[in-house]
Simulated scan of single mutants.
Amino acid sequence: MYLRAVHAESSTKALFEFITANPLGIITTAIPSTTHHFLQSSHVPWVLDVYTDDPEAPVQGRLRGHMARQNPQSIAMMEACTNSGTTELQQDVMILFTSAHHHYVTPKFYTETKPDTGKVVPTWNYAAAQVYGKATIYFDSSVAETSEYLSQQIHDLSRMCETSVMGYTGKDGKPGPWSVSDAPERYIEIMKKNTIGIEVAIESIGGKFKMSQDKGQGDREGVIQGFSNLGSDVGTHIAELVKERGEMKEAEKNKQL
Rank of each mutant, 00 (worst) to 15 (best):
T123S: 01
P55Y: 04
S84L: 10
Y104D: 08
P72K: 00
H237N: 10
S42Q: 05
P45L: 02
I224D: 04
D92K: 13
L241R: 12
A135K: 07
G216A: 07
M160T: 01
S142V: 06
G61V: 08
T35H: 13
Y2R: 07
N22L: 05
D182K: 06
E162M: 10
S74A: 14
D156S: 14
S212D: 05
S74P: 03
T123C: 05
G133F: 07
N194L: 12
P23A: 06
V120G: 00
S41A: 14
G207Y: 02
P107Y: 03
H101D: 12
V165I: 15
D54R: 11
G231R: 01
V44W: 00
N194E: 12
T87I: 04
S151W: 15
G65S: 05
C81L: 02
A57G: 08
K174I: 06
T82M: 12
R186I: 14
M211K: 05
K114D: 07
S181V: 15
P122C: 02
I26K: 08
I75W: 00
V93A: 02
G226I: 13
P32S: 12
K249A: 14
V105R: 02
A144C: 07
S232Y: 05
Q91E: 13
H237F: 11
I26S: 11
K215E: 10
T117Y: 06
D53I: 03
G133H: 09
